[in-house]
Design a protein around this nucleic acid. Structure first.
Lengths: 276, 276
DNA sequence: CCAATAGTGTCTGTGAGACAGTATAAG
DNA sequence: CTTATACTGTCTCACAGACACTATTGG
């Protein structure tokens, strides 16, 4: 930021530029859960977090992957409406869990001009997706590790592997807030690597005191599936009895079971809303 | 949002308006802790949350109170830098705890034109403030209650009382996310009543798993003062022994004491950084 | 001595972590 | 019968909630 010697100088410059305008976009981190293929017919499928990326067809960052997003129409749209419009376009879904994440605003984040982006997180159940959208592809999070505040993340679709590293730097005045700095990034456009990490950490931090997980699952699910979703988001194994105690109030048992699995069938549960 | 019949119609309109630009502002909810006056010389001062408001001198909302804020200079400033500039102007302080809160973007939130505002929360220790800034005034939060998702809040400075009500409406697709709708609001400009509530709830939700409280206190403080800050933010009384156990690792005792209080003097403590 | 607060000891109940055990489908 | 998972019983330990008790100042 430019430094000013006198207030007059500052105000002069300020007045001339403060009413200059800028563009905004809404970018969406669409998260869902995917199942790994299994060799052994008896085994349960492992689950993975999955994010939807779009291949850029134009400059800047032509050929790189980015989050679905689009420019805000300032005349009649809120950012959330803009995000919903993009969500509809990319997944053909509406009535999806959508949460404002963070506003990314680095001065040079778009090389063309100043563009401030408000990022959203959407949680979807993959089973609800029907059509395949051109240029869009689901990438599984196949690795997400943190060592000494350096986060390494690997994403993968059928053909490509994306990997990037982000350094979390402690900021002044707090012990618990981090600034994210991109260290390596082979194929993501803009600052979307930072958006992805921010979004995953947001979901992770909320999973234990909210009911957002259920947005990632179909109406009926087994407790093990539910547990796997928790595990994949928290990136750690949970103990069965403890897990079942914790979520007991949030679900209700049905009489249906999941059979044909080569082992004892599990009961299907559903989300029990509005219960303390 | 306008509805379109065909994609062509949509795209035509979209193309013509998507590159229209808008203005952004950074607004800051500056929170500190104030002490009530005490009659009895023996008694400890009660603490209150306090927010800095500015009287609007121009239209729109002339004469109403609003949060300190200002337009983003799109050429060279990030929103955070903009917030810091305003913070410096309003409090003459730098190196202050500052956190991006939320981006408020209702289409009609500013009657003049489309203005999207990214709100920040700043936590300051009132003792560090020296000069009094013109048109700015600290308002104490003298009441903050929630009943049936209706929040009632009362702010007060030496001369004026501000009160407003906000309805928290459950949103579709989740059980834990609320939309805030302004119900009554006698003297706050724009949507700044929503910003204040959002900010207080953010701080409240973070106080138990972060160390942000210490930004509201001077370097040396008694454990009771620390506890009072927790109590005022959480809006409930805490038990002494439990509280002391919880914060034991976060503070270190000094040999200094706070005397002249008409009762047993308490030891002064300081924040112990970087300890698990 | 009194009023008011500072600070600590300890009981109790809850609930997570841990591990072991029993149950049941497909092949 | 085997394999793999489903599901439950129960012990232990940590820790928050609660209450009572002692300590210490200014006036």
């Amino acid at each position: 930021m430019k430094e000013y010697k006198t207030e007059e100088e500052f105000l002069k410059d300020y007045d001339s530029s403060m009413f200059e305008k800028l563009s905004m976009t809404a970018d969406i981190l669409i998260i869902s859960i995917s199942n790994e293929e299994v060799s052994n017919y008896r085994k349960n499928a492992n689950k993975r977090m999955s994010v939807l990326l779009v291949k850029r067809e134009d400059y800047p960052y032509k050929g790189k992957w980015c989050l679905p997003g689009g420019f805000l129409n300032p005349k009649e749209e809120t950012l959330e409406e803009c995000a919903k419009r993009i969500l509809k376009k990319e997944t053909n879904l509406s009535n999806i869990y959508l949460e404002q994440l963070y506003t990314f605003d680095g001065v040079k984040r778009d090389p063309r001009m100043r563009v401030v982006s408000t990022a959203f997180v959407a949680l979807v159940d993959k089973a609800k997706l029907t059509e395949k959208v051109e240029n869009a592809s689901w990438f599984d999070v196949i690795s997400l590790e943190e060592k000494n505040n350096l986060v390494t993340m690997v994403l993968k679709n059928e053909n490509e592997t994306i990997h990037f590293k982000i350094q979390k730097v402690l900021r002044e005045k707090t012990t618990d807030r981090y600034q994210f700095i991109s260290k390596e990034n082979n194929s993501l456009a803009f600052d979307h690597n930072l958006v992805i990490l921010t979004g995953i950490e947001r979901i992770r931090s909320k999973i234990n005191y909210t009911d957002i997980v259920f947005n990632l699952l179909p109406e009926f699910f087994t407790l093990k599936e539910l547990q796997q979703v928790y595990e994949v988001i928290l990136n750690k194994k949970l103990l069965d009895p403890a897990f079942r105690r914790i979520i007991a109030d949030k679900v209700e048992k049905t009489e249906q079971r999941k059979t044909g699995e080569g082992h004892r069938p599990s009961y299907l549960f559903r989300y029990k809303k509005y219960e303390k």
